[in-house]
Design a protein around this nucleic acid. Structure first.
Ligand code: ZN
Ligand code: ZN
Length: 816
DNA sequence: AGCACGCCGACT
DNA sequence: GTCGGCGTGCTC
């Protein structure tokens, strides 16, 4: 008899112990189990196996073993435990988050209507007139209810009714467990075994002959086995013929995984450069000794855009692979589809690199995951969630663009993947490289304090000069109709001359839509989202008003919700308006826009990028989507419409984000042969985030920002936890926040923890829920955790009852 | 999260 | 009297 430590996918803090008396040779940490939890059956993750020992509580046996092979290695379990504690999230839920989706099995009930039931139920519905729940009609109509539909029946009244019907024999209820198993997506392929002579060919039936010839031709042109689907599509008669041919041993069937490429094209190939630059060599010689040891070390690779960071990653990965250890590369979500993947494919071969991206279907993702878990793939590239990749022994973890905001998950499990990369490195004794042209303040601070080792690449490859940057003060440009113009004369001139020279221009504005503020001219009220306290954004192309926070849409033929007036003023601007105005000013130019509206999917995104690459586009307008990791060799002009847009956000990271964004956009100019030019339009031409970005001067920015943070005691000079409250009643939410605030003030007798707030969140209503927050600040994070621990001990009734939801954001980055 | 238990008001 | 509302607490 064995005792198993199991983390269940439920919001419980502790792990549970279950007994197992079967053959335990097959048990390994990392497999899923089905276990009883109270009255239901839930998925659990096996963490440890012990010999049975007496316990104070009763122990239930495991219901079923769900996996033969572990989904994650035992070596990653301490990582999960740490995350659970630090981010204050139940361990089972942490693991559920880490694993690819579609794996959590659930117990469920399926309901069938019996013959008696189908006679009795119509009468029942009749009696209830329109007041009976819709699922009864559904049951009558389809004869059964799916587990998902059954789960939605919550009212005790109707649950009782179901039991009654079951007793009366009107329905039958079947218990079932949905395995949640996702399977690989495969297709059947056909290949010719041996070429046939013309005499052999003549013995075949006409359909077989035709199929055979077609198959041979297709196989020769594609140099691969031919999918049956494709064959049958061209010649429907082939369906039957291939079966005959297979019977005669002329062709054979095989299954292969469907590899969906959004373009039907291979990613670009990159040759390995023969020599490294001097700087790259220096970096490598510093790095190399660490890559060969099984030891934890973190490096901050500060390299300006175009200085060749990627080559350093590739060489480091080569060295680690040679020693048989695995490599994990994290990249920002939107950069995934492009460069990095191509570089690693070219160097290591496509079959040796697993890419975890959002374009994968559940099945494909699951396949990739299993290959990694079974040690078949030693190189993994992915976005934020790839930090959980089930590599047994990573020797190198790379975080590219480490400052990027997408590494922080902003809901449920609010982890920071870059921080977790460093943690995983320390737990699994490996090298961690954080790379960026504009490192996050915290990372650079750690580098100056010796916690990380700083590696620098200052020179651009091939000594390309930094682009020439001009700042335009929008306050001084001549207003049009009382408002500053969208385009300064300088920017317009630059675009014009760029068009004449047949060069590409990039126009950046980090806001989608046409107009982001709609005001009633008669009563002056803004048109707001029904569910959020924000203005709706007008999207003229889609003819809709969209809430950028909850996705709510409304018809754009609108009336003022207050006075029913038709006179609505379109204030503010986004990329769509920029595009419209540029169309007007440059009617002959080809203009494209790259933002979530035009490039929502991976394929549409790549399509636009490709058009820019092929020089089919003269002017590209975009949000921050254009900034991530794409080379635009023919872009010689970058225009930033409103550089200080982000500075107004009430958030200690506003300056840092603005500097990083402008620096990155600026870096898009002049990456090819021709020199680049950048024009920054702003209302705050003297702000250090803008002036430093203009000078390409990271260090000055760092020192300015560092001093500010020090004064205000913000990270890296303190640790923060943001406690968020939300609920349907503003009154309750406010009250809960006040209550908790007082509780904390009472608790922290020591002055270690400073309480800021509570205040209504800047986004004070979102998705129909009112929001308040409370910021805790301390020097040591242990003090913050101690406060949260004691809060968890005795939560107020408002929170226990679920009227107000309280969630803890450790190391918050977004204060909205 | 679910699910049961238990305690109160408002109906047969 | 009991039916059904919700507040409270537990799940190996
Ligand atoms: Zn009005
Ligand atoms: Zn909204």
């Amino acid at each position: 008899m064995m005792h198993l430590e199991v983390a269940v996918a439920a919001p419980v803090t502790e792990t549970f112990t279950y007994s197992f008396s079967g053959e335990h040779g097959s048990l390994q940490p990392g497999i899923r189990l089905l276990v009883p939890l109270g009255k239901r059956q839930v998925t659990g993750y096996l963490l440890a196996i012990h010999l049975a020992a007496p316990t104070e509580y009763k122990i239930k046996p495991v219901t079923e073993i769900l996996d033969q092979e572990p989904l994650f290695p035992a070596s990653i379990i301490p990582f999960f435990r740490w995350i659970s504690r630090y981010y204050r999230y139940p361990l089972g839920e942490v693991i559920k988050h880490a694993l690819p989706g579609g794996l959590t099995s659930q117990s469920g009930k399926k309901i069938y209507l019996t013959a008696e039931g189908s006679n009795a139920l119509p009468q029942f519905l009749e009696e209830y007139k329109g007041t009976a729940p819709t699922w009864i009609a559904q049951l009558l109509h389809k004869g059964s209810l799916t587990p998902a539909a059954v789960r939605k029946i919550k009212t005790p009244k109707w649950k009782k009714q179901l039991e009654k019907w079951q007793a009366e024999g009107l329905i039958s209820i079947e218990d079932l467990i949905s395995s949640g198993q996702t399977k690989a997506k495969t297709e059947i392929c056909i290949s010719v075994n041996t070429p046939l002579s013309s005499t052999e060919l003549s013995t075949l039936k006409p359909s077989e002959k035709k199929t055979f010839l077609l198959l041979t031709e297709l196989q020769q042109t594609s140099l691969a086995d031919v999918p049956r689907k494709e064959l049958v599509h061209i010649y429907p008669g082939a369906a039957k013929a291939v079966i005959n041919l297979e019977g005669k041993g002329i062709v054979s069937f095989s299954t292969r995984q469907i590899f969906r490429d959004p373009f039907g094209e291979q990613p670009p190939h990159f040759e390995k450069p023969v020599t490294l630059t001097e700087e790259q060599q220096a970096v490598m010689s510093h790095l190399s000794p660490f890559l060969h040891r099984k030891e934890f070390a973190t490096f901050l690779l500060h390299g300006v855009t175009g200085s060749g960071k990627t080559e350093v990653y590739l060489r480091a990965a080569e060295e680690v692979c040679r020693r048989g250890r695995a490599v994990l590369i994290l990249v920002p979500e939107i950069a995934l589809a492009t460069q990095m993947e191509g570089h690693f494919f070219s160097r290591f071969g496509q079959d040796n690199v697993a890419v975890l991206h959002s374009g994968l279907s559940t099945g494909e993702r699951y396949d990739q995951w299993c290959e990694i878990a079974q040690g078949k793939t030693q190189i993994v590239i992915g976005a934020r969630s790839a930090i959980f990749a089930p590599l047994k022994d990573p020797g190198l973890i790379i975080v590219d663009e480490e400052h990027d905001g997408s590494y922080k998950q902003d809901d449920s499990l609010r982890y920071q993947a870059r921080d977790l990369a460093v943690l995983r490195g320390s737990q699994q004794k490996c090298t961690v490289i954080l790379g960026s042209a504009t490192p996050s303040l915290t990372s650079f601070y750690h580098a100056t304090k010796g916690k990380y080792q700083l590696l620098s690449l200052h020179k651009r490859v091939a000594d390309r000069p930094q682009p020439e940057v001009t700042i335009v003060d929008l306050k001084k440009t001549k207003p049009i109709a009382g408002l500053p113009p969208l385009f300064s004369p300088l920017l317009l001139e630059a675009i014009t001359s760029n068009l004449e020279q047949n060069n590409q221009s990039l126009i950046f504005l980090n806001r989608r839509g046409y107009a982001n503020l709609l005001l009633c001219s008669d009563c002056g009220n803004p048109v707001q989202c029904r569910h959020c306290r924000v203005s709706l954004t007008l999207h003229k192309e889609k003819k809709t008003l969209i809430c950028h926070h909850c996705g709510h849409t409304a018809k754009s033929a609108i009336l003022c919700p207050h006075c029913r007036s038709h006179h609505i003023k379109e204030i503010g601007f986004g990329t769509e308006r920029i595009e419209a105005e540029l169309h007007q000013r440059f009617p002959t130019a080809t203009i494209a826009r790259l933002d979530r509206d035009t490039a929502g999917s991976r394929s549409s995104f790549l399509k636009i990028l490709k058009a820019v690459h092929n020089r089919e586009i003269d002017i590209l307008i975009g949000t921050q989507m254009i900034t991530k990791g794409h080379h635009f060799p023919h872009v010689t002009l970058v225009g930033i419409i409103w550089a200080d847009a982000g500075l107004g956000i009430p958030d200690f990271k506003a300056g840092e984000r603005t500097f990083q964004l402008i620096s990155q956009v600026t870096g898009r100019a002049g990456r090819g042969e021709k020199p680049g030019k950048v024009i920054i339009q702003t209302h705050q031409p003297d702000h250090y985030a803008i002036t430093c970005a203009r000078q390409h001067d990271y260090l000055s920015f760092y020192h300015k920002e560092r001093q500010l943070r020090k004064m205000l005691r913000f990270p890296p000079y303190s640790r923060l936890i943001n406690i968020r409250f939300s609920g349907e009643s503003e009154e309750n939410v406010n009250q809960a926040a006040q209550l908790i605030s007082r509780q904390i003030t009472r608790l922290s007798v020591s002055s270690a923890v400073t309480v800021l707030g509570p205040v209504a969140s800047p986004l004070s209503k979102l998705r129909g829920r009112y929001r308040w927050q409370l910021l805790l600040q301390a020097h040591r994070y242990q003090d913050l955790h101690a406060v949260c621990d004691s809060l968890a001990q005795a939560p107020p009734a408002l929170i226990r009852s679920g009227k107000v939801k309280m969630s803890v954001d450790v190391d918050p980055e977004n204060m909205l």
